[in-house]
Design a protein around this nucleic acid. Structure first.
Lengths: 214, 214
DNA sequence: TCGTTTATGTACCATCTGTTACACTAAATT
DNA sequence: AATTTAGTGTAACAGATGGTACATAAACGA
C-alpha cells in the first residue's frame, strides 16, 4: 500500500502531468485545425505550461504531432481489443463489432479528424511511427475469427476477406464523421443529430450484414 | 465561322487563359496540401503568371480556394447529370450509378481531397459559396427516380431514402480515395492498385445492391 | 491618334511562426 | 551542505508568408 502507483517523486509526477496536459491540448488543436493549421503558440497558450516546455519534451511541432497521432491510434486499437464478442454467435458478434466500430468513430471525432489530416499529408508522419502496423493486426484477426466461425456453420458466405470487411465497416463509420460538415451543407442532414445517428447506425449494420450473410 | 466561340478579343482571351491557369495550379496545390498547407508563392511560381495576378483576379488566398472548391463541386455534379441511366432497368441503372460514383471518386482524387480539406475547416468556406445546394439536389433526384421505379415493380425494398442511399454509396467510394495513405500503411493494401480497385468496385456495388434489393 | 481601361512586373512590407539562447529555480543526489 | 540535474520563464530571432504600393505596358474605343 505504501507503493501506490500514483506516488511518483514530485518532479516526475509534475513532468508527467505537464506532458499529458500538452498532449491533450495538442490533440484537440491538431484535430481541429490539422498539422499545417494548428499553431504552436496557440497550443502553448491553452496549456498549463509554456511553449518552452513543448520543445523541451517533444522537440518540435512534427514530433508533437506524431505523438498525438500515435496515441490516437493506440487508443482505438486498445478499445477494440477490450471488446470481447467471441462468446456470441457469429452474426451477433459481427453486429456488435460493426456497432462498436460505428460508436467509436462517432464518439471520437478527434481520431477521425487526425486520420483525415494524416491523409492530407500523404501519410508521411504515420510512416515514421514504429509499431502501429502490428497493433492494427488485431482488428483483422478478430474479424477473421468471426468470419471463419460464421462460415463453418453456414451462416456467412465463404471466403470473405477480413480486410475487405474491415474496409467496408470503417468506410461507412468514418464518412459519417469525416464528411459531417460538407454533407450537412449539401444535403441538409446532420450526421451528429441523435436521431440521424441512431438510424444510420442500424442501416450500416444491416447493409454490412446483408453483404456477409449467406 | 467568323464567330468562333474561341475567337475572343486577344486581351480577354489572355486574361481567361491566365485565370484558368491559376485555377488549375491552385486546384492541384490546395488538393495536395490543403488550404492551410498550400502557399500562395508556390502556386504563383507554378503559374505562367505571377502572384500579383492571383490577387488581381481572385483577391486573396481564401477567395481563390473558394473558387477552386466551387469548380470541383460543379464538375462532379455536371458529370452526374450527363450520365443518363433512365432508360435502363432500375437495378441496372442503380448498378451503373454506383459504378459511376465510384469511378468519379477514383479518377478525381483532387475532388476528394478538397472535400476532405473543407471538412478539416469545418465547412466554413463551402458555406460561402452560393448555389451549390441547388446543384446537389440533382443526384438525389436521380436516385429517387430509380428507387421509385424499382419499388413499383417490386424489385427494390419500399421506402428507401435516396439521401441515405447516396450517403452509403458516397461513403464507400469516398473512403477508398480519402484514406488511401493510412490504409496502405496500416493494412498493406493499396486502394490505387488496379486489381484492388476493380475488386473493390464490384464489392461496393454488390454491397449496396444487397441492401436495396427486396 | 489619343485617352481610357485592362492587365502585369517589381519590389517591398508587416506580421506571423517555428525555434532557440540564456538565465534561473528547485528537486534529487552525494 | 554542496553539487548536479531536471524543469521552467523570458525574450528574441530568422525566415516564411499573405498581401500591397507603384509604375508601366498593352489593347481597346473614340
Amino acid at each position: 500500500m505504501s507503493e501506490d502507483i500514483q506516488a511518483l517523486p514530485k518532479r516526475q509526477q509534475d513532468a508527467w502531468d505537464t506532458r499529458e496536459n500538452i498532449l491533450a491540448v495538442a490533440t484537440r488543436e491538431f484535430s481541429q485545425k490539422g498539422l499545417a493549421g494548428a499553431r504552436i503558440d496557440e497550443i502553448a497558450h491553452q496549456t498549463n505550461s509554456s511553449k518552452r516546455m513543448i520543445y523541451y519534451y517533444f522537440g518540435g511541432k512534427d514530433e508533437l504531432y506524431r505523438q498525438v497521432l500515435e496515441r490516437a491510434y493506440l487508443a482505438i486499437r486498445a478499445q477494440e481489443q477490450d471488446a470481447k464478442f467471441e462468446n456470441l454467435a457469429p452474426d451477433a458478434a459481427l453486429r456488435a463489432m460493426i456497432g462498436h466500430n460505428f460508436d467509436y468513430h462517432f464518439e471520437h471525432p478527434e481520431f477521425v479528424r487526425l486520420v483525415m489530416n494524416e491523409n492530407v499529408h500523404h501519410g508521411e508522419h504515420i510512416a515514421q511511427i514504429a509499431g502501429l502496423k502490428h497493433a492494427n493486426r488485431s482488428v483483422i484477426d478478430q474479424l477473421a475469427a468471426i468470419l471463419t466461425k460464421g462460415a463453418e456453420i453456414g451462416l456467412f458466405r465463404d471466403s470473405v476477406d477480413p480486410i475487405e470487411l474491415h474496409t467496408t465497416i470503417s468506410a461507412l463509420s468514418f464518412y459519417n464523421v469525416s464528411n459531417r460538415y460538407t454533407f450537412q451543407h449539401n444535403f441538409g442532414v446532420d450526421f451528429g443529430a441523435p436521431a440521424v445517428k441512431a438510424r444510420r447506425r442500424d442501416q450500416i449494420i444491416e447493409c454490412v450484414m446483408g453483404w456477409i450473410l449467406r
